[in-house]
Amino acid sequence: MKIIVAIKQVPERDARIRIDSGNKWIDLEDVEFSMNESDAYALEEALQLKEAHGGEVIVVSAGPERAGKTIREALAKGADRAIHLQSSDETELAAYDALGVARLLAASIQDEKADLVLTGLQSDDLGLGQTGVILAELLGLPHASLILKIEVAGNGLKVLRELEDGWFQHIELATPAVLTIQSGNTKLRYATLMGIKKAKTKEVRVIAVADLVASDPSLKPTAPSVVLDQVKLPHKQRSTQLLGGSPAEAAAALVEKLQFEVRVI
């Protein structure tokens, strides 16, 4: 089975971030980057499928040069080769919306004719959750999102999809297909020294975004349908309430608040 995993490099979780002077994005200086979490799970799924059924895992990532580090990490964990859709700087890709990026990705992987394309459910930075499904449309493939488990069944796949409120859906679909993967259902493997050393000899095909666009003018950024207007740091809200009364009354009040105000139970 030939599996393509689309991965994205995002600012490290919990990194201390500042908004840049234009209020349009975060200040990238001093920020460390890592692999988008759900993409890491997508990669893990792909590697497990390969271990069980053989085949090849190819990662594709769109991003500036720094994304190379994340690509190498994926190779170290066991991907066989990579395609780096490289932007010349931090801003080149900002001109594209999810559709634009999906077009670029589709163009760079079209020739691979993969049996399965996996992406993370959504990115930790923009959180649009669209790239994967648009990619499926562009490639003309069936897709399913929020996937927790993939099994090979006959010529197709059986997948487990997470719905809301503890509900799940079992879906069968034919390959080739596109799946977007939900985090947290398997254990991620750790990168090893041996993996890193082997990764050095693996192929990373670098395609410059500009070259790709030059070869196919339809990939040029059009007026984006979604524009990022302003970014803000979340406001810290802290409200503490002391619930008085007897322990039984306090507990009853707490349960009510949790149920109807905070709505967590």
Partner: peptide, 22 residues
């Protein structure tokens, strides 16, 4: 065992990922 990935341990893997990410 660890450098070649032969050691598979849920806690160990979690620790290494925590060290890498956080």
């Amino acid at each position: 065992a660890t450098n070649t990935g032969a050691w598979e341990d849920d806690y160990g893997g979690k620790l290494f990922n925590a060290l890498e990410r956080n």
